[in-house]
Nucleic acid binder design. Structure first.
Lengths: 335, 335
DNA sequence: TCCCCTCTTGACAACGTTGTCTTCCATTGA
DNA sequence: TCAATGGAAGACAACGTTGTCAAGAGGGGA
């Protein structure tokens, strides 16, 4: 039993020979085309069962030029729970369309993203969902002209007009700041990721809008941008708390920053309020109260996939933007 | 710009016409086959660039009968961080082999797992990595005979001999219990998942071995099996603590159980020691000390993928078992 | 009875690529 | 000068399937 004797896979010709019909008749049975006498069809089905025949989808889609029953998803890192949830949701929708999902990670590298894009197009996937890492996506145009369908997720592309599904970043940040203002906070430390990132830009814009709306001045010493990891976030929190007139509340622009802030606040036993964008696993078990600006990540993936399959199904309407709402969640222990 | 004008994709025939050579010459250039004069090859490459030609991999693998440059991964749920990490690791290895990964979720449904398996075989993937949900995998034999390569991950299959990559469950559990015993605990509450699950069985066996080795009697009132979610785990902890002669330590058979146990212990402010199998995100931020029996999840996926590509590469040695070691980690705040 | 129409069924080509075999040309040695 | 040799290039078939079209059987109406 070393599996080396490799029986050849049966083809429709084998089935046809066994059932005593032509290959075309077998093809008709396989594809449920009308115009085959039931008794013949039964014979074909029996032969299929006996031989263990399965249609070769490559030959099929080569000849018919139709669907490959595959879509692609280009994300940054599948090991990141956010993207994993998106991928699971997309795969779920794909399954209802008898379609498989190929997921590739670009690791935020625009050049790799381009290569992955090209590879997936070469494979003739029926469509692509892309979380854009690079800043210019004009290179996708040639493929769009050749019929490739694309939906962008979480961030808008530039250089190309296409469907897009995003979170309501600005509104979420506004709501988070308004919530802090209503609790009486006037000095709010704001820590966000690099403004090169769309979501960080939008969220910071929401923060400024909310502050301006309440007549609270925007104090540069209370804003840190370009914070990329929990350690840096912790240092930023520490620096603000150690400064003169420290903030009584913090706004964290994403969950990595939130985690870093929690760590530093717990270390110090500081009671400052904390509101952070993006929920994360076990946020409700964090050892202090916090407010999360959350949203349905699954819904994000699902909406993108649904849109993509509408396109694949022939929808040629003008590209649309789908916005997934956010909501405030009280998390952490002692809340 | 509604993308309806769908330019036909160029084929090697188009390239050949443009370069003034035969299709076979183009094929030779594409595949780096020898025997093409450099000046002709340059002309072909120029034509490829001008037309934006890309080889159709379906036609290619249909004709040559070789690799589809695709492997499949069958897991329970991609949204689960454990499986997401495995998938990312497998995709990483696949990438070094210029291969794409199709990931499908079976949701622990053996029937769905069978269907997913059949679908992926139908696609002629080069190989499959399977986290088996069902209890009988004899149905995979027909495909193995036709040359399908498979590696099983995390749990062994039954009814088929194949490569397998698993965690050292029993040794990990033994080490966890020995650690508690050395800290002086003699009454250890043990909470594990259903013994229908291989990992739960193995871990429980490790627990018994460690207890027996230390001469500590196995007390049925301190063992709960078949615990499936954090809520049930919390109730199990509560019941044991409320009984007579409550345990001074708990062993949790997986991270869902660990989380439920933490929740209940924190709610009560109970100081019992806690050791749990499987690490999880932010375990170091849990509001109490705990010990984790951890392992390298990436390594699990990587090892399986490496084995699979060895098989795809032609390795026909006897199926082997790869065991990934565990290690004890001190986690939680206040450690 | 004959013609037309419908319904089954099959023969054949085509999808885009690659394996096999042949052809052609230049070069070499006698 | 001519046969032998070897390398480059192309003609053709084949992979497994499906679209197109034609052939044949059977039925109904004139």
């Amino acid at each position: 039993m070393d599996g080396r004797e490799k029986r050849r896979r049966p083809t429709i010709a084998d089935v046809a020979a066994r059932a005593g019909v032509s290959v075309k008749t077998v093809s008709r049975v396989i594809n449920n085309e009308p115009g085959v006498r039931p008794e013949l069809a039964d014979g074909v089905l029996a032969a299929i069962g006996e031989l263990g025949f399965r249609r070769n989808p490559m030959a099929s889609s080569l000849r018919s030029g139709r669907s490959t029953s595959t879509i692609g998803l280009i994300i940054e890192d599948l090991a990141n729970p956010f993207y994993a949830t998106v991928a699971a949701a997309v795969a779920g929708v794909a399954r209802t369309h008898d379609t498989h999902l190929i997921t590739v990670s670009s690791g935020e590298d625009p050049e790799l993203e381009r290569r992955q894009f090209a590879e997936l197009c070469q494979r003739r996937v029926d469509g692509l969902i892309i979380v854009p890492a690079g800043s210019d996506h004009a290179y996708t145009r040639a493929e769009v002209e050749m019929g490739m369908r694309m939906v962008f997720l979480d961030r808008p592309p530039s250089g190309i007009l296409a469907d897009i599904v995003v979170i309501d970043n600005a509104a979420g940040a506004r709501a988070g700041i308004v919530d802090l203002l209503e609790a009486g906070h006037r000095r709010i430390g704001v820590i966000v990721d690099s403004p090169a990132i769309y979501t960080a830009r939008e969220r910071l814009a929401g923060v400024r809008e909310a502050l301006a709306g309440a007549g609270v001045p925007y104090d540069d010493s209370l804003v840190r941008v370009g914070v990329a990891d929990p350690e840096e976030a912790a240092r930023a929190v520490a620096a603000m708390l150690d400064g003169g007139d420290p903030p009584t509340a913090f706004f964290a622009g994403n969950n990595r920053i939130t985690v870093g802030a929690i760590r530093e606040l717990c270390r110090r036993g500081d009671g400052a309020a904390l509101t952070g964008f993006d929920d994360f696993e076990l946020s409700s078990l964090m050892p202090r109260p916090l407010t999360i600006i959350g949203y349905d990540v699954q819904e994000l993936g699902r909406a993108a996939a649904v849109r993509l399959f509408e396109r694949i199904g022939g929808d040629t309407s003008w590209p649309a933007e789908t916005v997934v709402p956010t909501r405030l969640l009280r998390r952490g222990l002692g809340q």
